[in-house]
Design a protein around this nucleic acid. Structure first.
Lengths: 160, 160
DNA sequence: CTACCGGTTGGAGTGCACTCCAGGTCAAGC
DNA sequence: GCTTGACCTGGAGTGCACTCCAACCGGTAG
């Protein structure tokens, strides 16, 4: 498999694949007689996992660190596990944040619908969209880190 | 309230607040006799909502568009609602993606723990972490857009 | 033989979202 | 009166994550 095929199968551009190799996210590829990169299917698993780490908000630095550890083999298992556990906590926190936002959006959409229909909105509830006001993380889950969402002093309104 | 106080209350830096005003995310603030920005509390609601849009992955362009619509008042209600509905679909998709990733991470952490404990992993399951394999979105929700996650051809393994 | 396609390299350019800085103004406290 | 500190402006700089480009090379089809 050459870089074009891999690009197609992985969904990344050839430029991105070369860039990833340059910075060390992908191992240096074997070359054919003409100096062209040759890949086997297994690389797809790694790319797929990298992609997931990225899609779930892990920055390039951490992905790089993880890739680096991976090349060191078994000795790095513990550190890799710790990285994944830390990422798991971040992901769980993000899910909670997004789930909260879903409620906020639903309320706001509801309000806008009413206003579009010409209903007069009680001044006391004008522009009101239920926000955090201490809503507990919705994910029923033990190892969960709220540190990322402990920030807003729970203002209950939001002007449209 | 001057910009320093607002920075403290909102969690944004004074530079960011001025930058937001410059690009139009925040309305041009009133000034005191000395030309300094003066804010009232209501701006916090707007900043808070902007912050949520950002935290849930809305880019500055769209936030800008929304802010622009907001200044146009009631005539823009429908478009604003449509934007929020589109964002809701994105957020719901993101939650599904993150929830999938949670499972992947749990499996990988589990595997690493076993390997750390010295258990020999069956070669057939070596480096195996259950991935998507068609897991339905976990969010029990009707108006949901999978378009963002219809991408990977479900490769079941991922080299650690 | 040559046109063309897909690959190679190093390096420059892009877009986002800030972040920092120089050089200046203003109001209040000592 | 002078210092201090918060604020002002315009513009430059930063970090991330690509993305594009010029100039070149190698294999294959017509």
């Amino acid at each position: 498999m050459r870089i074009g095929d891999l690009a197609e199968k992985s969904g990344l551009s050839t430029d991105t694949l070369r860039y990833y190799e340059k910075i060390g996210l992908l191992p240096r590829a074997l070359r054919d007689a003409g100096g062209r990169r040759v890949y086997d299917e297994t690389i797809l698993r790694w790319i797929d996992f990298l992609d997931r780490l990225k899609a779930t908000g892990m920055g390039i630095r951490d992905r790089l660190r993880y890739a680096e550890l991976r090349t060191k083999g078994g000795a790095s298992l513990t550190e890799r596990r710790e990285m994944l556990e830390a990422h798991r906590r971040k992901v769980a926190g993000d899910i909670a944040k997004l789930t909260d936002m879903l409620d906020v959006l639903d309320d706001k959409v509801e309000l806008y619908r009413k206003m579009e229909a010409g209903e007069t909105v009680d001044p006391a509830f004008e522009s009101c969209a239920r926000t955090e006001h201490g809503s507990q993380p919705v994910v029923k889950d033990q190892s969960f880190d709220h540190s990322t969402s402990t920030r807003a002093p729970a203002d209950a309104k939001s002007q449209p």
